[in-house]
Amino acid sequence: MPAALELQNVTKQYPGAGGAPAVADLSLRVEPGETCVLVGPSGSGKTTAMRMVNRMVDMTSGDILIDGRSVMRSDPAELRRHIGYVIQNVGLFPHRTALQNIGTVPQLLGWPRERIVARARELADLVGLDPALADRYPGQMSGGQRQRVGVARALAADPPLMLMDEPFGALDPITRDHLQGEFERLKERVSTTIVFVTHDIDEAIRLGDRIAILREGGGLAQYATPGELLLHPADAFVEEFVGADRALKRLALMQVSDCELEPVGAVPAGSAAMRDDTSLRDALAALLSDPDGRLPIVDAEGRPIGVLALETVHAKLRVEAGAPSPG
């Protein structure tokens, strides 16, 4: 069962930090099963905020509730065994095989041996780890493989809540894109609430159900769904942080199938067809390089279902934006 997470006026003040708190009066609520992405520049306290949830860092004031129960009422080690934890450099145990690493938390929880092994295999399969790697040591795996094991290890005991600190930050762009895609699918298959920290706004938009943008000094600038954030940035800071290309980012969140298509008859000869589950951003790129600005669209089975025009994409953006918004 995924947990509800609530941060109530959480403040973290490191001693001797010149009076400026790392996290200042942060309040937000994550609904069960949602992925909440904490995003912000360096020094915005996003990692500190995440680490206070499993008490790797203790808060100075405020409270954090998991399913209504304060984390301060649990023994830290016991609390952490029920919260998945993934960090940027994975931190796999180099002297343990992939399967042994995945079985860490079940072992701490005292599961019987056969159940640990069965569960570890199940998880390795879930995160798409090649079975040939099960008995390899971390030193014998690539960065992407290690991070898969890291995610499997965090999910092993079926935690109601999972914390991920820039899990894909240290990977090359191609592996990162691949693992982000897998993570999107994985989210659908596991029922857990996720708090995900990143400094990459594109990653936040792609993976988050809700995004909390933190500003330097650890204050909450805006907490909204990706669509809202791109459409109605709360202030100049958020607007700058999401970037000048936020129209393009919004297109990335939509698919061709979200648009009204023109009838099939108007297909110009010689244009390569595009599937209707393509993102509008990719469709726009193709439209821009098409001499007529028109593309035939097919469904998943390859049947022609209409034609997408450049104007349609433009109109779609304007409709989505609705009445002219302030700012």
Partner: peptide, 23 residues
């Protein structure tokens, strides 16, 4: 021992003595 390895061990709920003994 890599600080990240120890951080992960702690974050998964190992106690101090368990971190020493197992990691």
């Amino acid at each position: 021992v890599e600080p990240d390895t120890v951080d992960a061990a702690r974050g998964m709920g190992m106690t101090g003595p368990q971190i020493v003994r197992r990691v």
